[in-house]
Design a protein around this nucleic acid. Sequence first.
DNA 1: TATGAATGAGTGTTCATTCAT
DNA 2: CATGAATGAACACTCATTCAT
Lengths: 196, 196, 196, 196
Amino acid sequence: MSLRQKKIAKKKEDILRTAVSILAEKGYQGTTMEEIASSLLMTKGSVYYYFKDKQDLLYQSQLMLLQQSLINIKTIQQENLPVVDRFKKAMVAHITYLLDEKSGFEMMVKLEQIFSTEQLEEIFQLRNDYEKCFDQLILEGINDEVFETVEITIVRNTILGAMNWVTQWYSPEGKKDATEIAETVSDYLSRILVIK
Amino acid sequence: MSLRQKKIAKKKEDILRTAVSILAEKGYQGTTMEEIASSLLMTKGSVYYYFKDKQDLLYQSQLMLLQQSLINIKTIQQENLPVVDRFKKAMVAHITYLLDEKSGFEMMVKLEQIFSTEQLEEIFQLRNDYEKCFDQLILEGINDEVFETVEITIVRNTILGAMNWVTQWYSPEGKKDATEIAETVSDYLSRILVIK
Amino acid sequence: MSLRQKKIAKKKEDILRTAVSILAEKGYQGTTMEEIASSLLMTKGSVYYYFKDKQDLLYQSQLMLLQQSLINIKTIQQENLPVVDRFKKAMVAHITYLLDEKSGFEMMVKLEQIFSTEQLEEIFQLRNDYEKCFDQLILEGINDEVFETVEITIVRNTILGAMNWVTQWYSPEGKKDATEIAETVSDYLSRILVIK
Amino acid sequence: MSLRQKKIAKKKEDILRTAVSILAEKGYQGTTMEEIASSLLMTKGSVYYYFKDKQDLLYQSQLMLLQQSLINIKTIQQENLPVVDRFKKAMVAHITYLLDEKSGFEMMVKLEQIFSTEQLEEIFQLRNDYEKCFDQLILEGINDEVFETVEITIVRNTILGAMNWVTQWYSPEGKKDATEIAETVSDYLSRILVIK
DNA sequence: TATGAATGAGTGTTCATTCAT
DNA sequence: CATGAATGAACACTCATTCAT
């Protein structure tokens, strides 16, 4: 990758990071391009130089989030640790990633309404891959007889929901910082699965 | 209340019910007054007869949701049942209420950005009351030594999050209907607290 | 048609008339909605109340022009006059209509680039019908042996071109008024066909 | 002219040729600098090296068209041929030139709106010169008693209109090629003038 | 009460143009 | 000479809101 391409990639990522946090805070429709641009001390026109349109910005930020999350969880899954520890680590990673990026997995809009079929497929594929990793860990735990036998999909959705919602109530001003909150919540959620 | 007033109240409630589900689906900014009106076979002008503006519609729908939820949980709290059962009943009620009304507690917008201070206070008060009910149940459970000793706020937020997120993944086409999902999720969430 | 509908139809026609002349003068891309609106002492928003979008405005104005032209020529065609006279009358009508409406048949844009397939079909159908009327008159003249035997399509296109171009050079400040110009040009163009 | 200057002149002409055909097809407002540049495998910036701005591009392409047309007609005018033949040759040259360059004399915009007074004067001067050549031929024909006595300006405008319009209906897929169409149309237009 | 019509502020997007490298 | 990046003014279009009837 040439220097120029690197510069572009860097700029794109800068924009995406900012977009992610604003979009997560105000939602897709509630966020203006102007807002995103001026947060970056850019003009609207410049943002359009890097991204085709607003939808493209949302799409690529979703991809970025999901791809990074997927890398995170896959890395953890391969570590040489008991399944219980890996599961907890995956939860902590999920929560801290969301809190650090000030992002949300739901951009507050029905994705179907703004994405093309191919885009939706890509997104759903990644989301699915991610969920499968969690399912895999749960299944492993059940087979190892350290987790209760449960309906995997429902439990996974429940746990993901609890984690995704953390962005709604976590306050940096509180007693615990992001990592501590992540640890605590993960501990509590573990109890749904772990056999005592 | 005169007949006329009753008629008006009825109409208002009709509008609110529709508004709630559309707002929950598309978010505050993503929903147009036109959309709400035409869903009710009304014209925009008529909706404005009953509600001052869009924000008022959101405000009152939030109030309705919260007030009803509060009534639900208070009723349950006073029932003559073991705390574990009351807690589970409260969770089931919470989830089924959300799924039935096709609503969401978060209207996909930072409330601070659209509500006035007084309105925010009212909303937060109700939300707080509602959370306190849950906290109260949890505390009771701990005192009765049927629940683990936990950080109540965090556990409550975690559980509420898991429940609120159900609207994101529940599909009426799935194997379980709304009530069954609510029961199942509640069972799993109970494990966070219940001493085994 | 109710009074209300009549009012709407009237307003739509007003807008179309203005749009036609501005679009003809400045071309599709060179005309702004703002311009059209303010020519009518309206706001942009109002124009959008009557027409879906700019393209719709162009489409409907083309339809109006073509439909009226078609009525004009069909009326003339049925008059009980020698074919030479009817042909000349048709030419005069064509030119004066364009000059009166300050319009042009070509809105200075490749129609294919802005219209949908169905819209294009409708336009081309009408255009074709109109051309067929001219062709019919020419054919009649040939059969009556008052017109030379010619390649009908090419002659018709040549004559239509000469007439359509009049809007480019006619000036109301000149010696002749619109009708006189139309008469004169038609006389000259007749010479292409009439046997002497 | 140095080699460098020649290279620049060559490049300018390349750009103008491309610009002419795109501008003729899409109109001034409908054509983007990007489009012109990328048709030439250049970047926008490069085009700006050769031409001050978009208007300059249009201006110079008009000049080029008119100057070439003027040369064409003047050459023909001086040929040692009967006026009827020279007139027809002029028409054929006019039409084939337009069709070959895929150009149009009207760039679909009121010239007054984009050109400066001096530029307009230059353009009008050339246009006038060109028209005068036609007028001259017509006058000659009248004096030679091979053309009917006509109102020269009107006839010339009518004929020019018919010729300019050919670009609107000529299709390379048709039975006749550009030259044949030009010949045919010229023959028909001759009949307006030639005494039989 | 209800509504059709109008409004205007705001938003996404385009594009001619500039300029540092 | 060439270009990539940035800019900002302009424009199409939307939509909450108002108001006369």
